[in-house]
Design a protein around this nucleic acid. Structure first.
Lengths: 240, 240
DNA sequence: CGGAGGCTTGATAGACTTCAAGGGTCGTGG
DNA sequence: CCACGACCCTTGAAGTCTATCAAGCCTCCG
């Protein structure tokens, strides 16, 4: 199997050889839209966000970077960054120059495979989020986002006693889930009320992760079992 | 520069050596959710769609495959397909066995790089669509989708006299844009009214592509020019 | 010619947004 | 240490966009 952290393993050699540490303050750009990124970063501490901003002021965040994440391999293929990336907290990272990565990409099959596998996994994750964005109501979007951020924190060993750091404002949540900040506020209030989560002082606590995942959750139907689902008119049509 | 059709070029050798033609009828599965794909397909003729179906019957389409597209490299990294892919029309394709692709991926750096570059480009395109899904109103979503499908058809030489084949039902459009079929109908009526497009009999005509692209369009603000935008309260906040 | 799927339209309902105002928290400078 | 300002969170009221429900018609294909 081509596992998910291939590219990190592949990258770790490069980091040891030639990475050098960099720091960003909160609100610093890791890259600006239209700018050229000369380095790829491996985040050690702190969070960052990738976002677009539209002419009328609306914004959409397309990715949150947590410690352990690479930021961002997509800079390899575009002459200019299509979206800005900004530090949400103070960030400490290891930088690897783009030239080195490109050179290695063309010569080392294991490395190139690692990058390919990483990109394909991110594509899978992002596809799942598109489904949520397109078809799920507010509470489920928030629940899914919170779940995923918590699990990613846990995976990197950043949780203690069912708690993790959570430096996002309600505006950030709104801009990722495609909601208004006001509606995020109201939805979170409801979620706190039924004890799905606690969220205070930039810290997140999830009393019952399984509950959060299932209540506001993922059930996706297998095609095999199509007949058993309760059909609805309109968008319930099955293509097959 | 790492250009966008790297992986197709890389793949073409494999196809000549060992690809064999396959055909699917309309409504056939190219892969089922949870199924294992033993081949990667290069579509020659016909359209396909990748979608999820939820317990209550709602559906979301996450990708349309057109002639010239690979379907789907993401099958390499997952033991089981996370989403089904179904033929929207009769499909003719060239199949390459998964084993061959995997083997080549691990041994041929140019090939692995091609796959990586292709995946990273798809990630970029999908990110742009997420922004639309999250923050743009119905008409703009439809306009953008139609534009992109038309341009992809044109790129593959499938347009004649400003027309191209368009085998999607309004339900398909709804399931991709996250709308209801009824609302797609009404929005299309308006777009026809202002002559942004014509859509009849499974054919699409765009009288003025630039108009469609600009009217219902993309303007994304550069961070550099942040000050010049008209700010709004709420989600208008700039992070920097 | 019949039937199924797709398109269209109107009426009603619901989810979410926008606008507006007030209060809390935290860091900073006097 | 306190005061101030910036930012964030919260709540209510009103409005908009989009979904849902339901019915009728059209088109295509067997």
């Amino acid at each position: 199997m081509l596992t998910q952290d291939h590219s990190l393993q592949a990258m770790s050699g490069l980091i040891r050889e030639s990475g050098n540490e960099v720091r960003f303050k909160r609100h610093d750009y890791l890259v600006r839209r239209g700018g050229r990124a000369d380095s790829i970063f491996l985040l050690q501490d702190g969070w960052a966000a990738r976002y677009s901003r539209m002419a009328d002021g609306r914004q959409h965040i397309s990715h949150f970077y947590l410690p352990g994440d690479l930021c961002d391999l997509s800079w390899l293929v575009a002459a200019q960054a299509s979206q800005a990336v900004i530090a949400l907290t103070p960030v400490r990272a290891v930088a690897i120059t783009r030239d080195l990565v490109e050179q290695r990409l063309g010569s080392d099959p294991a490395f190139a495979q690692g990058v390919a596998v990483d990109a394909l996994w991110r594509l899978e994750a992002q596809t799942a989020w598109m489904v949520t964005l397109g078809r799920r109501p507010a509470a489920e979007r928030l629940a899914q986002l919170v779940c995923e951020l918590y699990l990613r924190s846990e995976q990197r060993g950043k949780t203690v006693d069912g708690e993790c750091a959570f430096p996002l404002s309600q505006q950030h949540l709104a801009d990722y889930t495609g909601m208004s900040a006001v509606h995020v506020c109201r939805t979170l209030r409801w979620m706190r009320g039924v004890e799905l989560l606690e969220l205070r002082r930039r810290r997140l606590r999830i009393p019952d992760l399984a509950l959060l995942a299932s209540t506001c959750g993922y059930p996706i139907v297998d095609d095999m079992k199509t007949e058993s689902a309760e059909p609805r008119t309109g968008s319930s049509r099955v293509y097959a």
